[in-house]
Design a protein around this nucleic acid. Structure first.
Lengths: 145, 145
DNA sequence: GACTTTACTTGCAAATTGCAAGTATAAGAT
DNA sequence: ATCTTATACTTGCAATTTGCAAGTAAAGTC
């Protein structure tokens, strides 16, 4: 139990490294945080700025500027909502989707490699455990909608 | 399998948030990265600068300055090695140990909370799974000695 | 003893941060 | 209807953090 922190720290670090290295696609470079933003915009259906900033636990002003940067790179599109014109709806451009997919592919390749060292039973156990852990973390409600 | 990335992303994020919030001890504030530095100096026995920077995957120059900052806060001590006077040996000061321990305590409390939602069997399975996952990640050798 | 490598630091310019203060729209109160 | 308050987002600014290039100083190599 004492070493759970350490193991989690290592897993987190390794997973973070992965993302860090995988953020250059074609001519475009995106930072780690930007890749997370792309990822979340892709996942959530036409989210607002707030939603993504909240999900990622970022300060909204920092987020605002990151989005500006992604718009400059033509990876993200921002349009005012019809229902409430204070809010802006985010979506990926075609190129944004392409970059997100390329990153996704690299992550999946890495995950495949990792699970390659396990047999089917281990693999399933690990995946189930991760989900359970995540669910437990959610219950304690430290963060992240 | 497709959602493993997402689950890992969430776990990572939640675990990162935890650390982010837990870095004010007594009068002293340390950033997330600094808390990781303290943690690793504590773990490794009289490590050099390189070693910690490498472990954390940080640029050595950035690391150098972070250490300077921790020394200013009197949490870390740096002394030239006897064997090789180019290298500096790092260790925590008494206060540094105190801060590291306080952070450790907060993390452990959080982990206890998380596992509180599981029965003994689940708990053991999850811990075993995390170790297995970490070992598999290590085999693919993306990072982190 | 001259060259190379290694461990670490500093200069600098760019990027990233958060707070305070701003604009603009929406919702609620009278 | 309008006055106030709340919400969604942006901008100014000053502080921090970053990485590269160039530095120092000590080992190691030939």
């Amino acid at each position: 139990m004492e070493d759970v922190r350490h193991v989690l720290q290592l897993i987190t670090r390794r997973f973070g490294f992965l993302n860090k290295n995988c953020c250059s696609v074609g001519g475009v470079d995106v930072s780690l945080i930007q890749s997370h933003i792309l990822y979340e915009i892709d996942r959530q259906h036409h989210p607002s700025m707030q939603q993504i900033a909240e999900t990622l636990g970022m300060d909204i002003t920092t987020f605002s500027r990151q989005v500006q940067s992604l718009i400059r790179k033509k990876l993200v599109k921002k349009s005012p909502s019809d229902q409430d014109r204070r809010v802006y709806i985010l979506e990926l451009t075609t190129e944004g989707k392409f970059v997100a997919a390329a990153i996704e592919q690299q992550v999946q390749d890495y995950l495949t490699q990792i699970f390659f060292h396990m047999n089917e039973f281990e693999k399933e156990t690990v995946i189930r455990s991760l989900k359970l852990l995540n669910a437990s973390m959610e219950k304690t409600g430290v963060c992240c909608s």
